[in-house]
Each structure stands twice: as structure tokens, then as C-alpha cells.
Simulated assay, not measured.
Amino acid sequence: MSGITVILTVIVGFTVTAILGTVMIPFLRKLKYGQTIREDGPTWHKQKQGTPTMGGMMFIVGTVVAAVVGFSYLVFVQKSVLLETKGIVRLLAGLIMALLFGMIGFFDDYIKVVKKQNLGLKAKQKLMLQILVTVFYLTILYAFGDRSTIVNLPFLGQWQFGVLYYPIMGILIIGIVNSVNLTDGIDGLAGCVTFIVAVFFMAATAVLKLSAINVLASALAASLLGFLIYNIHPAKVFMGDTGSLFLGGMVVALAFGVNMPFILFFVGFMYCVESLSVILQVISFQTTGKRIFRMSPIHHHFEMGGMSESKIVTMFCLITIVMSVLSYFAIINM
């Protein structure tokens, strides 16, 4: 993949998202599409009540437009991408999957802002929709010839999963998507962490010469950078479930694009920590009546301990950078 393609994709993704922010944020504020803050959340989050949400639509549009422009350049100018049949299928299927997850988030956000409730879709409804999207994604890959059940495991080489491949991948997809969703709890956290993850996949796909997936990673990274202009503390807009579920779908698509879905346990380490903190908190409280953390997900634990949002984001990002470097070595040595 040429540097021109990367530059073009990045410029388009950043510019489209940044410009959309100047239009969409006032529009959302005018519609009074403001976030309803959780009653059981940190008390100081109440001051964020009314901040426009559903801002994830900004980087969703930016990512799609940038991906289309970058991919079109590869097809009509470089033409070499036409040889990457699997890459093209994984790019298109992954982008569609992410958009469908984003749509689930949109429905969830819409219920919250219209009914002024912070619960949105019921847990069972959300899970059922996520299962349908996951089955759709895996079916598309299978239907278009991506039928290998051999997966590259970080530092362990190739493993044959056989009949267990699809149920394991289904659980992985839904788990990661919801983990990214949990990470979106304070200003800039999910956006910053996922930006680093996207940059990692830009580097990984460049090394592996996967042009189509590189376009997708570049589009996501650039669009998130444009969004973070408005989302870093103090946030002028929240991404909402619209954005966080889309991001979950995107990181899954990128991991499948390099045929290393389990790399998400490394590069997406902080996503997993967030989910684990919730699981441990629930188990502990239901079995002993005691809480392990001051509040879960774990970023709220640090908040309740007096750490500022900016410091929490910085800490999570630094850990993600370290894990991304580790993941990069796993990629180049596979």
C-alpha cells in the first residue's frame, strides 16, 4: 500500500469528521439529544447532564467516507488490491458489521434521549440483536469463501479450531464489542484507546501487506482523531452507544482482517480489563455481598479514588501503547 493512499485516507477521515463536528454538535444540542447521566454513577458526572450524545455518527460517517475514498484509489489507481479477494471481503463484511452494531447503539441511544431514561434497550434485546449481527458477519465470510478455521494465535502460531471455530468466534466478537462499549465511560477514554488500537492495525497491515484492511484501519484512526477534538475532557459531545458499539465492530473487523482475532486480548487489553472488572464486581457482590472495586467498570474505581479523568485516560493509553508494541512483535514473528 502506497504512502499516498494512507495520506489520502487519513486526510479525508480527519477532515470529514472534524467538519461534521461543527455542524452536528449544535444540531444535536438544538434537538436536545443530551446524555442522561446514570443515577448510580459518580455524583460529579451530573454536571455533564445534557451534553449532546450520539456523536459517534461523526466518526462513523468519517470512517465510511475515508474507507470508500481510500479503497477507490486502490482499485482505480493502484489496482493491486484486486488481487486481495479475502482482504476485500473482510473489509466490506467488517464495515457492514460495524455499521450494524452502530445501528443497535443508535436505537439504544434514541430510546435514552427520547424517553429520558438511561437504560435504553433491554439487555436481552441488545444481546439478541448482537447475536444476529455476529451470525450475519460470520455467514458472509463463509459464503464468500473465507472458510478456514485455522487461526493465528499470538506467540503460539497457527491453531486449528475445527467445529469450535464459529461458536468461539461468536463469543469473542460479542465480548469485545461490549467491552469497548463499557470502556466509553469518561471523556475521551474509548476514543483515545481505540485510536491507538487503530494505529497498531495500520502498522500491522502495512507489514503484512494487507492493503484493503490497511485502508480500514487508517480511516478509523483518522476519523477518531477528528472526533477527539470535541470529545477530550471536557467533552463537548459524547459518542454514545452509537459510537462505542461501532468501534467494537471495527476493532473486531480489523483483528479478523489480519486473521488474528485473539490479538484483541493483547492490543485490546484495557477493553478486557474493563469487562473483567464488571464480571468480578458482580460475582463478588452476589456471593459475598461485598464489592471488590469502589465502582465498576474499573475506570470509575480510579475516579472514585480521586484520579482525574485526564489522568485515567493517559494511564489507559500508555498501557495500550505498551500492549500494542507487544502485539506488533507478535504480528511480525508469526
Score class of each variant (00 low, 15 high):
22 T>G: 05
320 T>V: 03
191 G>T: 01
121 L>I: 12
44 W>E: 14
313 V>H: 02
153 L>K: 08
144 F>K: 04
65 V>E: 07
162 G>E: 09
141 L>H: 07
212 A>K: 11
207 V>A: 15
236 K>F: 06
209 K>T: 11
210 L>K: 10
207 V>M: 12
209 K>G: 04
157 G>L: 11
73 Y>R: 00
69 V>F: 09
141 L>T: 08
57 M>A: 07
150 I>A: 15
185 G>R: 06
33 Y>N: 03
287 T>L: 13
289 G>R: 06
140 I>C: 15
127 L>H: 12
6 V>W: 06
282 V>W: 05
291 R>N: 12
324 S>T: 07
108 D>C: 15
88 I>D: 01
297 P>Y: 01
174 I>N: 01
31 L>V: 04
162 G>P: 07
146 D>I: 15
213 I>D: 01
3 G>S: 04
262 F>M: 13
275 S>D: 08
321 I>K: 00
50 G>Q: 13
211 S>M: 10
163 V>D: 06
84 E>L: 13
256 F>W: 08
29 R>W: 03
29 R>G: 07
237 V>M: 06
216 L>M: 15
244 S>C: 07
146 D>Y: 14
31 L>Y: 09
225 L>Q: 02
28 L>S: 03
189 L>Y: 00
96 I>Y: 02
290 K>Q: 14
181 N>Y: 11
154 P>F: 03
140 I>K: 09
16 V>S: 01
148 S>T: 14
82 L>Y: 11
62 G>M: 03
36 T>L: 02
304 M>N: 13
200 F>I: 00
145 G>Y: 10
200 F>C: 00
92 L>T: 15
212 A>W: 04
136 F>T: 07
32 K>M: 08
263 I>K: 01
293 F>D: 04
283 I>T: 08
87 G>K: 10
52 P>L: 08
28 L>F: 09
172 L>C: 05
91 L>M: 12
7 I>K: 01
228 L>V: 11
250 M>V: 13
204 A>R: 05
182 L>A: 05
222 A>N: 10
207 V>Y: 15
180 V>R: 01
259 N>H: 11
23 V>M: 12
157 G>H: 13
131 I>M: 12
65 V>G: 06
247 L>V: 05
87 G>F: 05
116 K>R: 15
